[in-house]
Design a binder for these strands. Structure first.
Lengths: 191, 191
DNA sequence: GTCTATACGGTGATAGAC
DNA sequence: GTCTATCACCGTATAGAC
């Protein structure tokens, strides 16, 4: 019945980290937000690096789960790409936060090797999923002039991550929409 | 003859900030690197926010100057886009650093309004330059199937910034190259 | 211009009581 | 599980001597 502290910690930590970056958030912020002392956080996560690693893994699983759902429910390649872009649009939250892994990539220098490896795995997973989506699109004709699927995938991942960054600098969703407009225009039959 | 301390400060600060982010570098790092005390840095830049603002303005001018040169020397739209991509490729330095403004965009929450405004101006300037380059390309036919120049510009800015981020997470140049490969393939007659 | 000295709060982390 | 108390720094910033 009492809310699971560890879960609340993860939830708050993710939000703060996505707003302020790895070096911009502390156990003190976190402690204040959920109403315990910093010492208590160390009980759940021995070190800040442990918390961050748990955060990445949890985040990667959640996104991977969402993409797997999308693969099942989206019939065309265009539907899948539209859904993928929506994931990043939602994560931007009108320019107020970044995808956890976009935020952490910028602070790569401060991360442990294990966290760095998890970050790379996240990117690799995104590219693999996008490659499949573009392969499907090449077959079903739902996206205009599709190039090599692996190249389209790498470009699309960079596009949405960069679009988030530009939106973050403007604290607005508009730059994101402008950046993905051409990609969205290539999609056919998307509601 | 004695090296200008202010200039050395700016040079070192830019390097460190691009490697570690706004919240990941301190006056102490800077002081140690150029061999003076932190108190002396405050003589040149009253507060960290003043240093960062000077850094952005200097950086924006340098990049704008480079792009202006490129406009004069690159005859086709494709040449200009290739040159633009090269600017970001060089700034990535094999995955060891980011464009100053990519780094700062991720730490937007920590910046003063003046710095944020300068960041937005940097992005706006990049998009304006790219828009002209794509307009030229639409006329000279040097890039395949050019869409609305303003849309191409917004997408290209996001693409190269995102490509840097993915490269940074892997401490490698390869993800950057993969991300821009399709764009580069659209360019014709580029040595 | 650069220094020493210092203020003052933040930082991740630990020991041990409850 | 959470607390109090405490540690050993590190952070930006200032005052005033040289």
């Amino acid at each position: 019945m009492p809310p699971d502290t560890k879960a609340r910690l993860l939830q708050s930590a993710e939000r703060i980290l996505r707003e302020r970056g790895y070096n911009g958030f502390s156990y003190a912020d976190l402690a204040q937000e959920i109403g315990i002392r910093t010492a208590s956080i160390h009980y759940h996560f021995r070190a800040k690096s442990d918390l961050v690693l748990a955060l990445i893994e949890r985040y990667a699983e959640r996104i991977a789960g969402g993409l797997a759902d999308l693969s099942r429910t989206a019939p065309t390649g265009a539907d899948r790409i539209a859904g993928y872009v929506a994931v990043y649009r939602d994560a931007l939250r009108q320019g107020s936060s970044l995808c956890l892994c976009v935020s952490l990539s910028a602070d790569a220098e401060s991360l442990e090797p294990t966290a760095l490896a998890a970050l790379e795995a996240f990117h690799q997973g995104g590219i693999a999923w996008l490659t499949e989506a573009f392969e499907l699109a090449a077959e079903d004709g739902s996206i205009e002039h599709v190039g090599a699927p692996a190249s389209e995938a790498a470009a699309t991942l960079a596009l949405v991550e960069g679009a988030q960054l530009v939106g973050r600098a403007s604290r607005s969703a508009e730059p994101f929409e402008r950046a993905v407009a051409l990609l969205m225009a290539r999609l056919r039959d998307v509601g």
